[in-house]
Design a binder for these strands. Sequence first.
DNA 1: GCGAGTTTCCTAATATCATTAGGTAAATCA
DNA 2: TGATTTACCTAATGATATTAGGAAACTCGC
Lengths: 216, 216
Amino acid sequence: MEKGKQTLSIQQRRRRNREEIIEDIVQIARDMIQADGAASLSFNAIARQLGIKPPSLYTYFDSKHAIYDELFRRGWQLFLKHTEADIVQDGTVYEKLVLIFESYMRFAQENPDYYQIMFQRPVPNFVPSAENLALSFTSLDRFTAFLHDILESEGINPGIPDEQARDIIIALNHGLTEMHLANNPELPVGEGRYGGLIHQAVETLLKAWSPVKRSE
Amino acid sequence: MEKGKQTLSIQQRRRRNREEIIEDIVQIARDMIQADGAASLSFNAIARQLGIKPPSLYTYFDSKHAIYDELFRRGWQLFLKHTEADIVQDGTVYEKLVLIFESYMRFAQENPDYYQIMFQRPVPNFVPSAENLALSFTSLDRFTAFLHDILESEGINPGIPDEQARDIIIALNHGLTEMHLANNPELPVGEGRYGGLIHQAVETLLKAWSPVKRSE
DNA sequence: GCGAGTTTCCTAATATCATTAGGTAAATCA
DNA sequence: TGATTTACCTAATGATATTAGGAAACTCGC
């Protein structure tokens, strides 16, 4: 589908099944958010672009927040797939952590619309449904569990509880991503003031946490 | 002023000077943002609470964005004061860095309204005025310059360019703050899953960057 | 193929929102 | 005193999300 262009008439749409139209709505919403930010998503504008009147859009979504909720759900689902694909079982700790960092930042860079709704809070009064909130928790849990495994398995000895080391990783990872999006949203992961800092960041953490002899 | 309560009549207000009314408007706006988020700030609601009709509010601010711009300005001004007060010239690198981290997080925790407008982008189409954007840059510059000084002065040898070490500090600092606000916005700095992680985070960085003998 | 029920659209209306136009009374200044 | 400025007003515009109520059209059992 070309973004922003609806080619089918209403009669033609009618014949198409509901799921296809919902896909169109989601795609239109994603395009709009990528263009103007999540907060300025307009229910009316989606209807306009679909070629129907605003009230008719309620046939497919109960409210504007329901659209955000669907995007929230899809975002976390994609994040799950995305990170699982980038999680590898072999390689050094360093390589694994770099992959995790890159994966997280790449997700944010490639899906800024999902990322906004998932990790930032740009929409006033939007609270994800309990179901989708649970999905986000399990998704994050899997992510943190993986980080935990890395720390435990490979002889890392942070000198602090593993949970704290894990949370420092999460904070640094998230911080780098936020700064990259704020400063060089157009640059791919690996480039830019913060996007090019992943290797150094991981190296710093591992240097501090590796069980090497030190004179102190 | 009690938050949300206007006790003076319009005639009485008239007699008060412009600056005082502007202070009231700013305070009302801050209260509203703290209650419902920056994006749901309502121009009409501010006027309502002030006891005037919405168009009359244009006597004091040219637009709703002008109010955001004023909050942006005040936020950065306060941030400048706030961090300068917490920047000390004596003490160890460790102590200085911990103070910086705590200062940043405390600012976010104590001024969530300013913080949103300054560091997050919750308002669609809001772009700070050139003047206030410049203020934010100088303010951030001073912050980064201070971090730079710390790294240079005290024999820290990160093994990477100072600029990169500085940016890792910024990212970690910002990441911890974001995670703290997302998880335990009500807890003071020093408590909570991420708010209580500052000492460990700084220790990790310095361990990696301290010029100690290592067997590698 | 016919009637019932469902789905999908509509128009009309409500209550918000930020903003502009145009006007009036009061305060200030020459 | 007279002119100007300030601070308010009402009325209106064009947006927004949402609800109410209705009309075609499609689907299904008979």
